[in-house]
Amino acid sequence: MSPLFIDILLFTLLAMTALAIVRLRNLFAVTMLASIFSLLAAGLFVNLDAVDVAFTEAAVGGGISTVLMLCALTLTKRDEKRTGHTAWLALLLCAVTGAGLVYGTLDMPAFGSPDAPIHTHVAPDYIARAKAETGVPNIVTAVLASYRGYDTLGETTVIFAAGIAVLLLLGFKRSDKREGGEE
């Protein structure tokens, strides 16, 4: 099977999954479909040579995110309220935004073309120098952990801040209630 065929197949499956997410009202099913969506996205990333992104997406998008969603569902409720009507204004807004974005892509270099501006500036430099300067054969790792180490430190700070915020929102409140004997 050629990479192009796999690409088209995966995008078709992704679109079907997304449409099912739009239509379904059962939040448990929606969560499972979101997990499938992430897994298909991971497959697409492998096909597009982004192996590091693929396993992060599979672990984080397909795994952790699904677990968090299921936790939230057990603490809230399983079904979405039926509204009965289509939100035409929202649909129109999405159509206009989408059309604007598609218009924006018309000037972009064709998919996979090696002489696109993105491939001709700093990227060849990183590929040529990464091994000698950092000793890591995986260029993504070299950039992430070495060249942009401070950026990754900042990213860790974001996760830490989010973790603290989640604890503040949920953790301490619960133990207070238990001590008070309420609920």
């Binding site: 597009l48 040579d49 982004a50 590091d52 992104v53 993105i118 491939h119 700093v122 990227a123 990183y126 590929i127 260029i139 993504v140 950039v143 992430l144 942009r148």
Partner: peptide, 8 residues
């Protein structure tokens, strides 16, 4: 090689 920078 594909471009590693978008991946990062």
């Amino acid at each position: 090689y594909s471009n590693p920078l978008p991946h990062v």
